[in-house]
Amino acid sequence: MRPIRCITCGKLLGDKYEEFDRRVKAGEDPKAVLDGLGLKRYCCRTVMLTSVDLTEEIQKYKKW
């Protein structure tokens, strides 16, 4: 799962992924979306741009 808080500064990012992914997928410039979400620092912006959700990969090998 992607981080809930920014790894460096602790800003809450968890509630912003959905909107970010949706808008970027729709073809908007990531820069504009990040600005729109109010992420000014490059630490938060990096987390938004580079974090990858691997839970579905792990799920494949999970037995329960």
């Binding site: 799962m1 809930i4 809450l12 968890g14 509630d15 959905e18 579905e56 799920q59 329960w64």
Partner: peptide, 15 residues
């Protein structure tokens, strides 16, 4: 919680 849309974990069918 401050926001209701913070993802915590994904669950597959039956989990």
């Amino acid at each position: 919680p401050v926001s209701d849309s913070i993802p915590i974990v994904k669950l597959e069918r039956g989990q």
